[in-house]
Design a protein around this nucleic acid. Sequence first.
DNA 1: CTGAAAGCGCTTACAG
DNA 2: CTGAAAGCGCTTACAG
Lengths: 361, 361
Amino acid sequence: MPQTRATKKTAVPRAPRKSARALKATHSGSGGKATINDIAVSKKTVSRVINRSPLVRPDTREKVEALIREHDYAPDPMARGLAFRKSFLVGMIYDNPNAEYIVNMQSGALDGLRGSGLELVVHPCDSRNADYIDGVRTFVQQQRLHGVILVPRVSEDEALVEMLREIDCRYARIGAVELDDAEHMIITNDREGAIEVAKYLESLGHRHIAMITGPHRYLSTIERGGGFVETLRRRGVRIASKYVMEGGYTFESGVACAEQLLALRPRPTAIFTLNDEMAAGVYKAAYRLGIGIPQQLSVIGFDDNPIASRLWPSLTTVRLPIRDMGMTAATLLLHEANRRTSPLAFIPHLVIRESCQPPAS
Amino acid sequence: MPQTRATKKTAVPRAPRKSARALKATHSGSGGKATINDIAVSKKTVSRVINRSPLVRPDTREKVEALIREHDYAPDPMARGLAFRKSFLVGMIYDNPNAEYIVNMQSGALDGLRGSGLELVVHPCDSRNADYIDGVRTFVQQQRLHGVILVPRVSEDEALVEMLREIDCRYARIGAVELDDAEHMIITNDREGAIEVAKYLESLGHRHIAMITGPHRYLSTIERGGGFVETLRRRGVRIASKYVMEGGYTFESGVACAEQLLALRPRPTAIFTLNDEMAAGVYKAAYRLGIGIPQQLSVIGFDDNPIASRLWPSLTTVRLPIRDMGMTAATLLLHEANRRTSPLAFIPHLVIRESCQPPAS
DNA sequence: CTGAAAGCGCTTACAG
DNA sequence: CTGAAAGCGCTTACAG
C-alpha cells in the first residue's frame, strides 16, 4: 500500500512525484483515504489551495479543486495539526447545570463550525473546585486546541481567562455584559430582558412585586435583577427589600424563597424569578398554599427552559437565542483575523404565555 | 529552539542523542511543551513506556516515568494519532431531543474516558434525514475516530451500524435489548422498568389503565409498552385497545392523547406514559378538565427527566442510570481487546413520588 | 530488552 | 506563481 521509496543506503534520489498516478483513482486499501500525493500537481500547491493561499493562479486552483473533489480527498487533520502545531478542535468549557442551555449551545457552535473542518470537544467542569483552571489548562495545551468557547458561569471567571491569555489560547466568552475586548465577546444583554419584564408587570398594574435572584456572584443576577429593579423604580414602583430574596437558581431554592415571600403581608401579586427553574419552584409553593396562578399570583421566569411551556399554566419568560449565540461564538473563533471593534450582541425577548394577569385588587 | 540536525548533504551522522539535556528543564518557549526527546534515554523506550509495552525492564520503566513526571511531559495526540493512523477522539452520535439525557450521557462518557488521553467530540444528527449516515461516515473517516458511542435512537439503526462495520470503526451501542454482540452493547432493559410500573399500578388497585406510547419504530416503545401490557395481563388486568394511544414522545402529543383518553368511559384511573414529557402533557390536559392528580387520576412517566420532580404533584417515574451507561460505553471502547461474552446491562428502577394513589372508589 | 532508520500526511521556510 | 528539502512528534518494523 505505501508508495515505494528510495531507501537511504542505496543513495538513490527520492522516487519521482507520481503526478501520473494522480488520475488513477486508487483509493489505498482499508481506511481508503486519498492523501495529498494522490492529488499531485505538487503537494505544495495542493496545500496552498487547501489553506486558501492567494499565491495560486485561478486556473491552477480550479484544476486542483476538481482533483480534490474527484478523489474525495480531505486533508488529514492530525497531519495538518502536527505541522501547524495546533489542532482542529474547539473546546467548549462549561459549568452550567441547565442541560437544555448546554445542548443548544453545542448545537449552535457545531453549526458555526460546519464546513470549517473543526470539531467540537466538550469539557464540563466545576468552577467551585479551585483547580478546575488547571484542568482546563491541561486540556487546552495537551490537545493544542484551536480555541475555546466559554459559557457562563465560567465565562465570568477572570482567573480562567487570564490563564488562557497566558498560554495564548483563543477564546470567545458568552457574557451578560462586555467583559472583554469585542473580539472575544458575545453579549447576551440579560438586562434588556429584565427591563421588558419590569415594564410588562408594571403595565399590568402590579405594585407589590417580589423577586427571587440567583447567587450574587453571578453576573446574570446583577444584570437581570438590576435591570428589573431600576426599571420599576423609574416607573415609580419600589420593591421593598423584604420582597427580594437570593435563591440559588435551583428548583428547591425557588420553593423555599416563594414560601417565605408568600407569607408576607401584603402578599406580592407578582414574582419575578431570575430563571425558570425557580419559577417552577414558585408554582409548587403556590399550589401547596392554594394560591392560583395567575388569578392570585403572576409569575415570570427567565431562560425559556423547556419546562416553561410544560408547566400549567404555561410560564411567561424571557428567551435568549442560545443556539445563535453558540454559532456566533464559533464564528468568532474561526475568523480571529478580522478584529472587531463593536461587540456582537443579542437581545433577549419576552415570551408571553399564561402565567400573568393584572392583580386581583 | 529546534534541535540542530545533520543535513543530508553534509553526510554527517545524525546529531547524538541529547540524553544529557534530558535533565535540563528547558521547557521550550511558548506553548512550552516538552517533547519525547526531552525525556531522552531513547525516544523508542519512552514510546514503549507510554504505550505500556511489556518489553521494558521495570527499573527502566520507572526511570522513564520519573522523567516524564519531572518534565510534565505529555505525548502529543496529533503526532501519536498520525503515526497510529487513528486519532484519540471518541465521537458521540445522537439524535435525541432530551437534553438532560444527552448531557448526562456526555458527562458519563467523559468520566469513562478520563485518564485515557481520549477526548469526546459530539455529533448530533437527524436520523429522519436519509443521508445522515453519510454525515457520520465522513465524520468518522476524516477524524479517524478511535470509536463512537451510539445513543438511542440512532443506536437502533442497523444501516448506521452496518456502515460503521464496513469502515471498521469501533462502536458501543446503548439499547433496550441485546441488538449486537456483547462487546458492542450496553443494555438498558427498559422492559424491566415497565414491569415495575405495571406491578405498582396493579397493586394500587387500578383496573382501568391507559397507556400513551412513543412511535412504534422506537425499540423503547416496544420494550416499555410490551413489558407493561404483558405484566398486567399476567396479573389478570387487560388493557382495552382504545386505552392505548401512540404518542410521539413530545409534550404536545401527551396533551392530545390524554384529552382523548380522558374522554373515554369508563375513564381510566391511571395513565402510563412511556416518557416524562408526555406525562407533563397529561398533567396539562387533566388540569384543564379539572381532573385532580392523583385523587382522580394516577400518572406515571419514564426517564426521570428533571421535569418529573418539578411538576406538581411530583411525578412517579422510572429512572435509568444514564451517566453510568455513558461511562460504561466509554470503557467498552477503551478496552476492546478483552472480548466480552456477557453483555453489560443496567436495571432501571421505579422512583415513587406523588402522582399515584389507589383509584377513587 | 534497546536502538537507528524510515514513515505517518501535512506545512513552513527557502529557492527559483 | 511553483517546487525540493526539512521538519512537526510520534510509532512501526527491523536489527541487535
